[in-house]
Design a protein around this nucleic acid. Sequence first.
DNA 1: GGGAAATATGTCATATTGGACATAGATTCT
DNA 2: AGAATCTATGTCCAATATGACATATTTCCC
Lengths: 110, 110
Amino acid sequence: MNEAKRKRLEQAGWAVGDAAQFLELNEHEARFVEMKLALAAGVRQKRERIGLTQTSLAERLGSSQSRVAKIEAGDRSVSIDLLVRSLLTIGANPAEIAQYIKRAGATRAA
Amino acid sequence: MNEAKRKRLEQAGWAVGDAAQFLELNEHEARFVEMKLALAAGVRQKRERIGLTQTSLAERLGSSQSRVAKIEAGDRSVSIDLLVRSLLTIGANPAEIAQYIKRAGATRAA
DNA sequence: GGGAAATATGTCATATTGGACATAGATTCT
DNA sequence: AGAATCTATGTCCAATATGACATATTTCCC
C-alpha cells in the first residue's frame, strides 16, 4: 500500500497496519476489556458483601441505579475511571484495586 | 439544613453532606489522583526505557505528541482508560499495571 | 551561543461518557 | 399468584475526554 492510499484510509477513520499490528491491537483490546470486567466484578462483590442495593450505592456515588447496573455489567459506556471511583467509594483501597486488575491477566500467559 | 434547601444547593451543583462525608470524598479523590499519577509515571518510565519519543509513542497510540505529554503529566483531561491503553500499547501487562496502582497507595496506611 | 530535537501548554471541534428517566425483567416473600 | 423489591436495558442530552493543531519551553549536541 502506498503512502497516499494509507493516508486516505486513515483520514477515513481506518487504522491501517499489518497483520501483526492488527492482532496486537485486538490483544490489547481484549486485555483492556478483561480488566474492566475484573473491576466490575469487584464492585458487585464488594457491594453485595456490604449488603448494599444498587440504588443505595448509586446514592453514595451521586448516580443512578441504572448506571450502577451498567457499572457491574462492565457496559461499554462505563469507563475504568468510573469503575475505580466506584470501588473507592465502597471502601476499596488501591492495593485491593490492583488485585482485581492483576487477576484480569492471570488466566493468560504473561 | 432542611430538605428543601439541600435540594436547592444540590440542584445548583453542590454536594451536600456532613464533614465526614466531605473528608471521605477528598480522600477518595486524593487516592484517585495518586493512582493516575502512578500510572502516568509508569508510561513515562516504560517509554523512556524502550527508547521511544513522545511523538513515536503517539503514532502507536494513534494520537498526538501533545496528548502523550499530557498523559505523562497526569493531566486532568487524561482518563485512567487512556493511561491503561497507553501502558498496554507499550507492552505492559495487567500484572504490571496492577503494580503501578498498588504503589499508589503504598505511602499511606492502608 | 545557536540550531535541532524533544517536551510542554493552550485551545478547539468532535467523540465518548455519565446521570437521569422510563420501563422491562427477575427475585423474594406471603 | 401477585405485590414488593431489586436488577437490567434502552434512550436522551449535558458534561467530560480526546485528537489535532499552534506555539512555547526545555534539553542536548556541536
